[in-house]
């Protein structure tokens, strides 16, 4: 059941992104920025956590989930440490993803070259 819901929720989020790209002049970079911000805002309003309950990975793997992770981290840290949590929470919770992206990104670019087209 997890898999079916992940497929439907993840697919739907991507389909919304496709509509935005085709119907407007937004570039892929704009759509990514929009989605991460949207995820953060929805998370702040308490609307994203229910989506994660339903869609599991279908809600966490799309970039909206990245925004959600950041906000969730900030809110948890504010609860734990107060004001300082606003500064530390986001990166703490997203640390694995960001570090993986930077380090794997760097390594892959050392190992491989773009293919000629």
């Amino acid at each position: 059941m997890d898999y079916v819901m992940a497929f439907i929720v993840g697919g739907a989020i991507c389909a919304i992104g496709q509509v935005l790209m085709d119907a407007t002049k937004l570039s892929p970079a704009h759509v990514l920025v929009l989605f991460v911000t949207l995820g953060a805002v929805l998370s702040g309003l308490g609307l994203y956590e229910p989506l994660v309950e339903i869609g599991k990975a279908g809600a966490t793997i799309p970039l909206t989930g990245f925004g959600h992770t950041l906000v969730r981290g900030v809110i948890e840290d504010v609860d734990k440490r107060g004001f300082l949590g606003i500064f530390t929470g986001g990166l703490t919770s997203a640390a694995a993803g960001i570090t993986a992206a930077v380090v794997f990104g760097y390594l892959m670019s050392l190992l491989f070259n773009p293919k000629s087209k």
Binding site: C14, I16, M21, P28, V31, L63, G97
Partner: peptide, 17 residues
């Protein structure tokens, strides 16, 4: 796939590499 492979976090990795 268009947005189907841009929006997931794998697409974020693609935009870095």
């Amino acid at each position: 796939a268009g947005a189907g492979s841009i929006i997931p976090i794998t697409g974020f990795a693609n935009s870095i590499v």
